[in-house]
Amino acid sequence: MSLDHATIRRIASLARIRVEEHEVENLCQELNGILGWIEQLNEVDVTGVEPLTGAANMAMAMRADIVTDGGYPEKILANAPERIGDFFAVPKVVE
């Protein structure tokens, strides 16, 4: 499976990272190099193997569904690049 320029543009768009036209060819080569190296996994037979999702097959802990934190908008907004009142501000989305 080899990536072409259109696929690079598509995954960059999915990842919301702007890629300039002159960067596409270089990225294409780098990512194909890595994916080509990963192809070695094709030689492993995984028939009947259950996937492992975490570092260990541990049961997830349950917790009470109650509010334990919050109520300090100033702390939350202190790092906002832009705010209006108690809201995060972004460019206009709806006309």
Partner: peptide, 22 residues
């Protein structure tokens, strides 16, 4: 680029995301 960290301005929200992350 919305809640914390650095932001690059964009023409619209999507452009803001893409420029901020690039």
């Amino acid at each position: 680029g919305v809640r914390f960290g650095a932001r690059e301005g964009g023409e619209d929200l999507r452009d803001l995301y893409e420029r901020t992350r690039a």
